[in-house]
Each structure stands twice: as structure tokens, then as C-alpha cells.
């Protein structure tokens, strides 16, 4: 318990979390502080490229093994399974109707790549290595949750998904960049990394701080605007579901034989909720669902929870289980 508190305290006082807190506070105080749209986009492109590239380099250094394939399969299964649990929990805790509950549930099977990036940063700070291919697992976990959410609401009724929506989900810019950078890193290896390390390694945390400042502003504005829509049950769900997802991630990590770092990342992925890919898919496939509910829950409740308390909690629990 003491270790968890120490980790949480260290995490709370890290520049990443403090930048996020600054953003949330500024938004709630109605400051005019803002990160220009194009700059925020550039920061996210940088982070996706850097994290994908470094993951690819790590795979090039350690080689491809069967665990990579199994981890991808596990990621897909987790992504498809977690919305079913989220749906049941949400229906039990809140008064949300089936449609909105299914839309929210879809977000909790998919992933938040920023939470993943923050977790890799915490692992790096703690000197804990992780499997580089977890980046590919993150990409694989984006879409299956959407199908589960649509299944929950339609139960065999077709017509919610069309070819262009499939293309948008599977080829959305974040996925293409993440997976593309992963393969570039895998092809060019350590030599490639040495050529651009001054760009993708050294400034990484500083860029992440600025990006999280922007995310804090967005989350704060979302909370200020959409918070009234959420009842106590929904907020409880937003805090309870991440540890439940993380528990499934921990189990999968142990079954797969992942390292401590890899298991923490799989726990973080399972605990995180999407606020980019899934909301876009839900607006097309389930336009009747209220976007203020699922965006506020995933971005305003679960994302801050994971960033501030969740990641150190998952690291501490995994460390305990691994005996590290």
C-alpha cells in the first residue's frame, strides 16, 4: 500500500500530470488559455510517430516471436469482451438507456493512445522495459469494441456499419501513423533511431507535457459543459471500470508471459477509454446516442483517473504480482 501511495505521489508531482492539471484548472476557471488547433494536431502527430517508431526499433532489437501474435489476438479479444462487461456494469450503476449504455460501453473496450503514451513515459522513468510490439497491440484494440457496442444495440440487425465507416475506423490517421511508424522503426532498427534520436527521444516528454496541457483544457471544458449530464452512477462507472479492465489486462499479460512493463501497458490499454476513434464511429453508426455522455465520461472522468491514479496503481499491482 505504501508503495502504491509513493508511486501515486511521484506521479502526481510529475510534469506530465501537473501540465494536465494546469489545463483542467484553466478550463474550469474559464481562462482563455488554448493550444491552437493546428499545434495540437502537430503535437499528436509527433507523439504517435515517436511512440510507434520506438516500438518498432524495440521489436527489431529483440526479434519477432509467437508472443507478438498471441498478444495481438489477446488485444482483439479484450477489446471485444470489455464492452460487454462495461455495458452490464453501466446498466447496473446508472439509469442510462440501452442505446447510450452501449455507446458508452464501446469506448471502454477501445483504447486511449495518450494514456498508453503516458504509461510508457512512467515506465521509462522507472527504468522498466516493455515489449515494443505493445504499440501494435494498441492499434489492434481500437476497432473490435465498436463492433461489440453495435452488437449490443442491434443484436443481428444490419445496416449500422457501411464500407466507408469500416475504412474510416481501420484507416484513421492515428492508426495509420502509429502502425506506419512502427514498421519504419522495425525496418530501420537501432541505426535509424540513432539518426533521429535527437528528435524522437530527447524532446518526447516536453512535447507530451504540452499535449497533456491541451488535453487538460479539453477535459476541463468537457467536464464544465457535460458534467451536469452525468449522474453519480455514471461517474462511479467511469472510475470503477478502468481497474476492472486493468484486471483483465493483468490476467492476459500473465497468461501470455509478458514482461512487467508489457503487462502494465496491457493493463493500461484495457483500462483506458477511447475519445477519438470510437466517438467518431458512434456519431455515424449510433447518431441517436448522446455524445456529451460518452465523451464526458471517457475524456472527463476516465482519462484523468487513469493519468493521475490508474497508471501508478496498475504499475504497483503488477509489480506486486511479478514480485518486482
Amino acid at each position: 500500500m505504501g508503495e502504491i501511495l509513493t508511486l501515486a505521489a511521484n506521479n502526481l508531482l510529475s510534469p506530465i500530470v501537473l501540465c494536465f492539471a494546469l489545463g483542467v484548472s484553466a478550463a474550469l476557471a474559464r481562462s482563455d488559455l488554448s493550444v491552437p488547433e493546428a499545434a495540437a494536431k502537430a503535437l499528436s502527430i509527433y507523439l504517435l510517430f515517436a511512440i510507434g517508431f520506438k516500438g518498432g526499433v524495440s521489436v527489431a532489437a529483440h526479434g519477432v516471436d509467437l508472443t507478438l501474435g498471441l498478444s495481438l489476438v489477446a488485444g482483439v479479444i479484450l477489446s471485444a469482451l470489455l464492452p460487454l462487461i462495461a455495458f452490464a456494469l453501466l446498466r447496473a450503476l446508472s439509469g442510462l438507456d440501452r442505446l447510450n449504455a452501449a455507446a458508452v460501453a464501446g469506448h471502454y473496450g477501445s483504447i486511449s493512445i495518450v494514456t498508453f503514451v503516458a504509461a510508457t513515459s512512467v515506465l521509462e522513468s522507472s527504468g522498466i522495459a516493455a515489449e515494443g510490439y505493445m504499440v501494435a497491440v494498441a492499434a489492434a484494440m481500437e476497432a473490435p469494441a465498436i463492433l461489440s457496442a453495435l452488437w449490443l444495440i442491434s443484436r443481428g440487425e444490419s445496416g449500422r456499419m457501411d464500407a466507408s465507416l469500416w475504412r474510416e475506423i481501420l484507416l484513421n490517421g492515428s492508426i495509420v501513423l502509429l502502425v506506419g511508424a512502427f514498421f519504419i522503426g522495425m525496418i530501420t532498427g537501432e541505426e535509424g533511431l540513432a539518426e533521429i534520436s535527437s528528435f524522437v527521444v530527447a524532446p518526447f516528454k516536453g512535447v507530451l507535457c504540452l499535449f497533456l496541457l491541451d488535453m487538460g483544457l479539453v477535459a476541463g471544458r468537457g467536464l464544465a459543459k457535460g458534467g451536469k449530464l452525468l449522474g453519480a452512477g455514471s461517474i462511479a462507472f467511469g472510475v470503477l471500470m478502468p481497474p476492472i479492465g486493468a484486471a483483465f489486462g493483468l490476467l492476459a499479460g500473465l497468461v501470455l508471459g509478458l514482461s512487467l512493463g508489457g503487462t502494465v501497458l496491457l493493463m493500461t490499454l484495457s483500462a483506458s477509454a477511447s475519445y477519438i476513434a470510437v466517438p467518431a464511429a458512434m456519431r455515424v453508426a449510433l447518431p441517436e446516442a448522446n455524445p456529451s455522455i460518452y465523451l464526458t465520461l471517457s475524456l472527463g472522468v476516465t482519462f484523468p483517473f487513469n493519468l493521475v491514479l490508474g497508471i501508478p496503481l496498475y504499475l504497483a499491482v503488477a509489480s506486486f504480482v511479478f514480485g518486482a
Partner: peptide
């Protein structure tokens, strides 16, 4: 019907 909104700080394509 959902109140005031603006483009500033929107994080995804859904908005």
C-alpha cells in the same frame, strides 16, 4: 439543444 459549443480544443473527429 445541447447548449453552446465551439471548435476550440476539440479532440476528435466526432465533434
Amino acid at each position: 439543444r445541447s447548449g453552446l459549443w465551439d471548435r476550440t480544443g476539440q479532440v476528435g473527429r466526432a465533434e
